[in-house]
């Protein structure tokens, strides 16, 4: 994507690097359109997700609804010619985010990765990454957080206040520079901001989200989260590993007896490959990102 001049690039989306002033379009109308497009760029890099007003974890249905809502606002039929540039961006973003493979590539290219751990239904990690991956990540133990807003005050691009729970959480990993993050971590009166291993982050964030709990009649209904999220995460990971190992063993056992060794091996590797595919996809992006 490096070589091509800025004029043809969609201003916000592609030009992460040097921007060259827009030279084309002599008509006054399009200059106006270009100017108004520049403002969001200055506010800070907007990506496809911000453009469509969705989060990295939104599902296609949410993206579709949001896209249609925005189209109703910006489509040239409604807004006039000024909506042209913006609608092109919306279309571009929508096409990418609605196709799973394109979306993955895009996620990798901007460094925002939906960090998941295999099972799609558990893909609930909510923070995204700014810049390349680092071995450690920030995590707020929301159970301990008292909602003092100190961290949000010190590093506003990294932390946000979750309005529904009244707790702080990490929205973007390393959204601010290292010193402000350091200050934010230090400023927490309850020391509930932790540095955790990147691999554990998704599980922690998943478990940290309150979820509805089974009630008995009218009693005990409501939302719950683990008392100690770190312990819960460890148990969870252990359980997952056990399950994986078990299913692997099962496959091997079944296959060995009636088949020749080569066949068994082939089948085993195939099933392993199938199982590992979703992991390998994640690895691929990580490799891609870290080598860049």
């Amino acid at each position: 994507m490096a070589s091509s001049f800025a004029v043809f690039r969609l201003p916000e989306v592609f030009n992460h690097r040097a921007r060259i002033d827009n030279l084309s379009r002599p008509t006054s109308k399009s200059i106006a359109a270009t100017c108004c497009m520049r403002n969001p760029d200055q506010k800070g890099g907007r990506n496809y997700y911000d453009l469509l007003g969705v989060t990295v974890n939104s599902n296609p249905q949410e993206i579709k609804e949001s896209y249609r809502r925005l189209q109703k606002k910006y489509h040239p039929d409604i807004m006039g010619q000024e909506g042209h540039e913006h609608t092109i961006l919306l279309n571009e973003a929508y096409t990418v985010l609605m196709k799973d493979d394109l979306r993955k590539d895009y996620d990798a290219s901007i460094g925002h990765v939906r960090v998941g751990f295999g099972g799609d239904e558990l893909n609930m990690g909510y923070s995204s990454w700014n810049g390349p991956f680092r071995p450690q990540a920030l995590f707020v133990d929301e159970k301990a957080c008292i909602g003092c807003r100190e961290c949000v005050h010190n590093a506003s691009k990294t932390f946000v206040m979750e309005e529904t729970t009244g707790c702080a959480r990490v929205k973007v990993q390393f959204g601010d520079d290292d010193t402000s993050i350091e200050v934010a971590v230090e400023s927490c009166p309850l020391d509930c901001i932790h540095w955790v291993e990147r691999e554990d982050l998704a599980v922690l964030e998943y478990l940290n989200t309150p979820r509805p709990k089974q009630g008995y009649g009218v009693f005990n209904q409501g939302w719950e989260r683990p008392q100690n999220v770190f312990m819960a995460a460890k148990t969870f990971q252990k359980y997952q590993k056990q399950q994986q190992a078990e299913s692997l063993r099962k496959n091997v056992k079944h296959d060995v007896e009636p088949e020749t060794e080569a066949q068994a091996q082939a089948r085993e590797s195939a099933s392993l490959k199938l199982k590992m595919e979703r992991f390998s996809v994640v690895w691929e992006w990580m490799k891609k990102v870290s080598f860049k």
């Binding site: 091509s4 800025a6 004029v7 043809f8 040097a18 060259i20 489509h75 909506g83 042209h84 609608t87």
Partner: peptide
């Protein structure tokens, strides 16, 4: 564009010339 008008734009860039203009 929305009124179905087609514009074709073309430009030339020399790679390695140090400029993307």
């Amino acid at each position: 564009d929305a009124s179905n008008m087609l514009r074709v734009m073309a430009g030339v860039v020399m790679p390695g010339s140090g400029t993307k203009n």
